[in-house]
Amino acid sequence: MSELIKITYREALKAGIREALLNDDRVFLMGEDVGRYGGAFAVSKGLLKEFGEDRIMDVPLSEAGFVGAGIGASLAGVKPIVEVMTVNFALLPMDQIANNAATLLHMSGGQLNVPVVIRMSAGIGKQLAAQHSHSWEPLFAHIPGLIVVSVGTHEDARGMLHSALNSPDPVIIFEYTSMLNMEAEIPTDSGSTDISRAKVRREGKDISIITYGIGVYKALEAAKRLSEKGIDAEVIDLRVLRPLDEACFLKSVSKTHRALLVEEAWSTINVSSEVSARIMEKAFYELDAPVKRLGGIEVPIPYPLHLENASVPQVEDIENAVIKILRP
């Protein structure tokens, strides 16, 4: 049996990047302040010293330019890990991502692969107000040609990058700022993440809580509290938001017959909307209760802590929603 190590989410991310750089000379990290500053969130701290400035490239504030350059570099035989400091700046390179990364393979009739990896931190929880608190996973998950993954656990924080770099197609990785200091125990040999599959994080028989990102630990905490009340919830980490692993959640719903969908993104046209639609289309007759979504309140995220917290689902909200579904 493998040993467990205690690690923060930040350290796990860094370990993933470091392993990737050690494994393949063609891999390099480029992004704003990833080198001399040590990374805006200290994820890449120390890597410049270890790998040098050809492998850890600081770039100017030109998100469209350097993301586009990362895409171009990936067309020409190297393996860039492009860091967009936060998702909040990701609309600037959105043209590059949507019109180049996502289209080139198809538009060229299968000739051009775009094996670029683009990481960005996301989520709310640091009182950063409206312009720095976006949950735009659904915008990216809307686009065919992209693989969109979400890092909801420490294990994936370390293991996801390796799989992303092995993908022949562009991968967008969402990491979560508010989780950086969280500690957890993971096996020393946890290995790489299968980025084609969702993962059952907790097995249960009464209801399926389907979520991703920050929602994963919140749902697990809610499930723990619910178990004390005699409710056995299953928690599914979608992990890959495009293409969705629907087999995983359809199987779960077919077992539990109830579903609560949890995410921080605004509810209208979010990932849960799609999951809900697929359950209706493919598992409707398995349901004993209507599918319930618990998403972000539709408001630019405000600064004060109590209002920020009220903008996205909290553990108690998940707990209460489950109780309402099971004991109406």
């Binding site: 586009g68 171009g72 020409a76 860039p80 180049n100």
Partner: peptide, 25 residues
């Protein structure tokens, strides 16, 4: 021959990136 790009200016950073790859390799 890498296109064929129909968003005005959208391919300029691709060229910079391809040249970066040439330098690295």
């Amino acid at each position: 021959f890498f296109g064929g790009s129909a968003i005005v200016g959208g391919h300029l950073p691709l060229a910079t990136g391809m040249a970066l790859a040439s330098k690295k390799l």
